[in-house]
């Protein structure tokens, strides 16, 4: 949540997160470079530039796989949710690694000539109509452009300016970048290295990432049992005490909406399940300090009116609730974001 924007809103968790990221990167780059040199006879190792090109390219792709795995992992197990919190730093670092890989490539392979290196990148290998001989560098360039769009728009400010929905759709471009990069690697370094490990690494990473995505979609489907509303439009949710205190029950309506029905302080309130920030699942969060708190980035909303506490001004839709004869009902018609709605009081609590 942002009151006045800062470049980066640092906190202890982010610092530790980034420290692990830096150490992991150094470990990968260090091990890759050291073993590349050690595995070759003395004096016959890669030129430092070509070594760096490979190391940074491999690091960027590895990181991209990790980034793509975190989302579904967090859906499959709550324990991974903290990894989501600072995921955008991973994304920006991934772009920077890919950029280093790309720029070194341009300088080394396409540079040192009378041609503009960027022009040379597209013309030096002319075989655009072949699969085997395809200039795979252009695929990497396209992926780098997508990653650049995502990296420069990663600040919360851009989400606000471009609109949350548009921002989200823009950032789905990551999947196209991933597909382009898989092809870039398959038609590039995999064709040149000994058969086996490089292909297996790409195929394995893809199977893991796509497997996780499909598993999380499947589990979401099982969890997504839709509830029907009765004739007067209200949805019967049974005993309100069945919802654990400070937690929510997520209701999926026939219209495809997700409502988070929270129990707190002996009361019931219902808000949209979708956080205004990154569309996180609010219903998997909790009521802390009187506010519904998103499990992803900790954005908060008052359950009674779906507004963030001052000085923040984010709003989410609310829903009407009532308890009749000990039975809890919610109305599937959403109210405008930030509409105050009286909570239903659980009798005898």
């Amino acid at each position: 949540m942002s009151h006045v924007y800062k470049a980066i809103d640092w906190n202890r968790f982010k610092r530790r997160y980034d420290l692990v990221l830096a150490l992991g990167l150094l470990a990968f780059l260090g091990a890759f470079m050291a073993l590349s040199i050690a595995a070759q006879p003395p004096g016959q190792s890669f030129t430092p530039m070509q070594l760096a090109i490979r190391a940074f390219g491999a690091a960027a792709f590895l990181l991209l796989n990790i980034i793509l795995a975190i989302g579904p992992l967090a859906r499959l197990s709550k324990r991974f949710i903290p990894l989501l919190y600072n995921r955008r730093h991973l994304g920006v670092v991934c772009f920077v690694l890919a950029l280093i890989h790309g720029v070194l490539n341009l300088l080394w392979y396409q540079g040192f000539s009378a041609l503009n290196p960027l022009v040379a990148l597209f013309v030096s290998n002319p075989r655009y109509t072949s699969i085997a001989g395809f200039p795979f560098e252009s695929l990497g360039f396209a992926a780098l452009v997508i990653l650049a769009f995502l990296a420069v728009s990663s600040h919360d400010y851009w989400q606000k300016v471009l609109g949350s929905s548009f921002w989200k759709v823009l950032h789905m471009g990551i999947y196209f970048a991933y597909a382009l990069l898989v092809l870039h690697i398959l038609l590039g370094v995999v064709q040149e290295e000994k058969p086996g490990l490089y292909f297996a690494a790409v195929a394995g990473a893809f199977l893991l990432v796509s497997g996780l995505h499909f598993a999380s979609a499947l589990i979401g489907r099982v969890r997504d049992k839709k509830v029907q509303s009765s004739l007067d439009g209200w949805i019967n949710l049974g005993d309100p005490a069945a919802i654990p205190d400070t937690r929510a029950r997520i209701v999926h309506t026939e219209e495809g909406q997700r409502i988070a029905v929270f129990r707190y302080d002996g009361k019931i309130s219902a808000v949209s399940n979708v956080c205004a920030h990154q569309n996180g699942p609010l219903g998997e969060g909790r009521v802390t300090d009187g506010c519904v708190t998103c499990p992803w980035h900790g954005w908060q909303y008052r359950p009674e009116d779906g507004r963030s506490p001052p000085p923040y001004n984010e709003m989410i839709p609310t829903y009407r609730v009532q308890i009749d004869n000990g039975i809890l009902y919610v109305h599937p018609q959403s109210l405008a974001p930030g509409t105050p709605t009286p909570p239903a009081v659980i009798e005898g609590s």
């Binding site: 992991g24 470990a27 990968f28 890759f32």
Partner: peptide, 18 residues
Amino acid sequence: AIAGPAFAGAKLAAHQMP
């Protein structure tokens, strides 16, 4: 997240052609 990449980096690097 530190040990995994170190292992992967070493494995990939050692597998390269002369």
